[in-house]
């Protein structure tokens, strides 16, 4: 419990760090930060809206610390300002809507590739040196080494354009109204196939390699040898002795991988024109919509921290040595 509390405190500090970067960055740039942040819309913004935006981002009269506190205050009250491109929509609602799509896409892809990749890694390590191992290892190397941009473009080209099996964009058929109907959900699933396939291709290799290497490092441990000497079935030894223990370091590497997964997911969404954070962000970058760009850092950081916390909790559940501590 103390361990988890300590982690929570640390995450709070990390979130503050991201906010601090957001605060100082425009002020460190040459020129007038207010001009810089809101200029792309400056002319169209009504003066009172500009005033409230300035307040949100801490551009108030007074010393720097007062400005900083104002900004941090608005973040913790959930005010991330308004989008300039989609004025007057608040950043939170622009990003919040997109975040759901991203989480669905990313979450599903992460679970699928983690389960599948871990399983492949276990099998490859267990059949070390076999043809299965060689094929799995080499394929994983190739899959991990190709950037997500490239994988998504190639998947789009092959399955979207050349074979024309799947739609090339959007999360669902635009003519359908979002609802919990079979028609809508199946449309979402159908549109999700290619982005999902891309993300899984990008992610699965990393999980496979990590698990395989962890397993191989473990297979020489005494308790594995003892389990075999006990006459337990190969299955039991492989799953309950080797894989169960190799999963611990794999889970902690998952925490570090979440950043990469987020990045991959952003890029994939841009390529497939998927309405998630990636796409919103892409539009924001093209329009230099700074409130949205800054807001996504905070939301992404928060997502990453929540995911890290989930990993922490599952680590505690998986490793009895931590539970006592």
């Amino acid at each position: 419990m103390a361990f988890l509390l300590r982690r929570l405190g640390f995450y709070l500090a990390a979130f503050l760090a991201a906010a601090t970067i957001n605060f100082f960055l425009p002020r460190l740039m040459p020129g007038d930060p207010i001009q810089l942040m809101f200029s792309s819309a400056g002319a169209e913004l009504p003066p009172e809206s500009l005033e409230s935006l300035k307040l949100t981002f801490g551009f108030v009269d007074g010393p720097l610390w007062k400005q900083y506190l104002t900004y941090i205050g608005s973040i913790f009250t959930g005010d991330l300002g308004r989008s300039i491109k989609y004025f007057p929509l608040p950043v939170t609602s622009v990003l919040g809507h997109a975040l759901i799509w991203t989480l669905v896409l990313m979450g599903t892809a992460t679970i699928i590739s983690f389960v599948l990749g871990t399983w492949l890694g276990v099998m490859a390590a267990w059949k070390r040196g076999s043809r299965f191992d060689v094929i799995v290892s080499v394929t994983s190397i190739f899959a991990t080494s190709v950037p997500a941009v490239v994988t998504s473009l190639i998947v789009l080209f092959v399955f979207g354009f050349t074979l024309d099996w799947f739609p090339n964009g959007y999360a669902a058929d635009p003519s359908l109204d979002p609802a919990f109907t079979l028609q809508y959900i199946s449309s979402v699933a159908y549109h999700g196939v290619l982005p999902m396939l891309t993300l899984c291709t990008v992610l699965i290799g990393g999980f496979t390699v990590t698990m395989r290497n962890n397993m191989i490092n473990l297979l020489g441990e005494d308790y594995i040898v003892m389990a075999r000497a006990k006459g337990l079935s190969d299955r039991r030894v492989m799953l309950w002795y080797a894989a169960r223990n190799a999963l611990l370091p794999t889970v902690s590497s998952l925490a570090i991988a979440i950043g990469t997964i987020l990045g991959g997911s952003l890029v994939t969404e841009v390529v497939f024109n998927y309405p998630g954070l990636g796409n919103v962000l892409y539009q924001a970058i093209l329009a230099r919509d700074y409130p949205v760009i800054q807001g996504q850092l905070l939301i992404m950081t928060a997502t990453m921290l929540v995911a890290n916390f989930i990993v922490d909790v599952s680590y505690v559940l998986l490793d009895p040595r931590l539970k006592a501590a």
Binding site: D222, Y223, D319
Partner: peptide
């Protein structure tokens, strides 16, 4: 069998 380091012969997570 009793192995060299019995300390490590037991699975730590079971």
């Amino acid at each position: 069998m009793v192995f060299q380091s019995a300390m490590n012969s037991l699975n730590p997570v079971l």
